Simulated scan of single mutants.
Amino acid sequence: MSTPTPHATAERPHPAAVLRRRWPTALAAAVVALNLIGSGSQDVADAVGGFGETLPLLPLIYLIVHQIGSPRATWPVLGAGLVAVFALPLQGAVAPSTVLVALALAVLVWGAVRGTPHGRAVFGVQAVGALVFCGLAPAGLAVDPDLGRYLVAAGWFCHGVWDFVHLWLDRVVARTFAEWCGVVDVLVAVQLLFLV
C-alpha cells in the first residue's frame, strides 16, 4: 500500500510552492547546517572568536544599503561583505571586527554629513543598531570566552529580531535578505548557546 503524496488544496498549498516562497529560510537553515558540520567540535573560544569577528558585518550591510538607498543592492553588498570577512583574516595585522567597525563608523559619518535617502529618523535607528551590534562584538571578544559567548550570542539573536522587524516593515534591505539573515542570526545564537 503506497502512502498518498502531498498535494495542494485550498487550505494547504503544495510543498513546492511553500519552498519557493520561503527559499530564504531554507537557504539560511542549509548555510547554518553546513557551517555546523564544517566546524566540527569547535571549542568555545574559537566559536566566539569567529562569530564575534563577523558580527559587525550585520549592521554594516544595513548601513551601506541604507546609504545607497536601494534594497536591490542588499545581496551584492552581502557578497562584498562576505569576501571581506574571508579575506581580512589573511592580512593578520588588524582584527576583522576592527576593520568592520571602522567601516561602519565611516558610513555613519558619511550619512551624518551627506544626508540619507530615507531621512534622519530611519538613519538614527540604523545608527543606534550599528552602535549596539558593533559594540557587542568587541565586548564579546574582549572578555572570557564563557562570558563572551553570551554577549556575541545576544548580538546575533538581537540582530535576528532586527531583521524580522525590517522584514515586517519592508524597509531598508530586501525582504528576502531580511528573512534569510533573521533565520541565520537566530540559528547562530542557538549554536553559540547550546551546540558549542
Rank of each mutant, 00 (worst) to 15 (best):
161 V>Q: 08
94 V>N: 10
1 M>Y: 10
35 N>P: 00
188 V>N: 02
172 V>D: 04
149 R>L: 01
187 L>W: 07
81 G>P: 13
32 V>Q: 01
34 L>E: 10
31 V>C: 07
84 A>P: 05
194 F>W: 12
144 D>Y: 00
24 P>G: 11
80 A>C: 11
49 G>D: 07
6 P>R: 13
164 F>Y: 15
45 A>Q: 09
78 L>A: 04
160 G>W: 01
46 D>G: 12
189 A>Y: 05
102 A>G: 13
12 R>H: 12
175 R>S: 15
79 G>S: 10
53 E>W: 03
175 R>H: 10
76 P>D: 09
17 A>P: 11
137 A>P: 00
171 R>C: 09
26 A>M: 05
108 L>M: 03
114 R>W: 04
78 L>N: 01
65 V>G: 07
155 G>I: 01
134 C>P: 04
67 Q>V: 11
90 L>D: 00
181 C>M: 05
173 V>W: 07
31 V>D: 00
115 G>P: 09
62 Y>Q: 11
116 T>R: 07
186 V>M: 13
26 A>Q: 04
98 T>V: 15
51 F>H: 14
105 L>Y: 05
136 L>P: 14
124 G>Y: 05
71 P>N: 03
81 G>Y: 10
163 D>N: 12
31 V>G: 00
184 V>K: 02
178 A>N: 05
151 L>M: 00
175 R>T: 14
107 V>K: 07
95 A>K: 14
96 P>W: 08
29 A>N: 05
103 L>K: 07
